[in-house]
């Protein structure tokens, strides 16, 4: 077993253990007791603003590619 496997395999195992342990606990009050939490029952942002940002990101990368940046 080489060093690459030991390091990244170990990282994966430790991370999975941390996920299965910490995932079962409630988040801290700093996370849960605040006024600006996401309201999952409704979409508070408009479809237009979402589309504008998505198109903006698309156009930036598309034109960079068109100009020949690789």
């Amino acid at each position: 077993m080489d060093l690459n496997t030991i390091f990244f395999g170990g990282l994966a195992l430790v991370s999975l253990a941390a996920f299965f342990y910490l995932g079962k606990f409630k988040a801290s009050k700093a996370q849960t007791e605040r006024d600006d939490r996401i309201t999952w029952s409704k979409r508070s942002f408009s479809f237009r603003s979402c589309l504008t940002i998505a198109l903006g990101i698309f156009l930036i990368f598309f034109f960079l590619s068109y100009l020949g940046y690789n």
């Binding site: 690459n4 496997t5 390091f7 990244f8 395999g9 170990g10 990282l11 994966a12 430790v14 991370s15 999975l16 941390a18 996920f19 910490l22």
Partner: peptide, 12 residues
């Protein structure tokens, strides 16, 4: 193994 380690590392 690098990709698996980094994926779960990011998750945790």
């Amino acid at each position: 193994i690098q990709a698996i380690g980094l994926t779960f590392g990011t998750l945790a």
